[in-house]
Amino acid sequence: MHRVRWWVYVIAAVVIFIALAPIVWLAIASVTPSAALLEKPLHFFPAQIDLSRWRAIFTQGQNSPAGAFRIAMLNSLIIAFGTVVISLLVGIPGAYAFSRLRFRGRRTALMSFLATYMVPTIALVIPLYLIMANLHLLNTRIGLIIVYSSFVTPFVLWSLSNYMDGVPRELDEAATIDGAGRLRILWSVLLPLTRPGIFAAILFATLLCWDEFLYALIFTSTTASKTIPVAVAEFSGKFSTDFGLVAAGGVLAALPPVFIALAFQRYLVAGLVSGAVKG
């Protein structure tokens, strides 16, 4: 490809600053004494370092909001992982059906899936609470995994079927002629070609779970089941908030998705198709 011009680097630098600066300062705020956070003019680099919030998060008991955050990180990871696995398992075959098969009501079916995604959480949360209570799923991670799968799956179906549409049909049709069955085509032809789309979907699905607030707030109230957003909400009392603690929690919460993205970035951007189409 072409040599990248200098001004592209300038734009990239500006983007990096806009994206990173608020988070870098979030990290700084997490080690700034509370009183110094209120200074005017503000010193962007504090004269004193205060590690108390980090110490609180890593050493305090589970009954304290800071200590509960550790468990919440683990809960969020497990819930995101469980949800992503379930949604992909049921979503990939479905996406294949929508993209490659011809059947009556295809569009209506896909639109119906998407429509369930449009219903605001607020409308569903109270009837769902009753169901969860009857099935003893309140305050459990499994309960949240089941609920989250219900809104992550439509998204996986929708985005992957669209992505598969972008993969030229000639490729799997060629395989059909070779005599491969549908599942084989899906597994060995379409899936490798869809890999960037799948990893984008994984990333997005993970972050949907990472972000979700209202369901988690209403369905969990034990340390063993609360997720990160709920744990962060607990840093605020009825009236008071220690922004430094929110900042420390925020920095920690942002790390796992970044690691996931880094681990997957090879797949996310591998230029697969350019080679394949030629063949």
Partner: peptide, 21 residues
């Protein structure tokens, strides 16, 4: 005992009322 932030208290009581939690 269950502990929730103040923000969640009202809504939790409402949501839980039907189930008698």
């Amino acid at each position: 005992l269950e502990f929730v932030p103040y923000e969640a208290l009202h809504d939790k009581i409402v949501a839980a009322s039907a189930a008698g939690t």
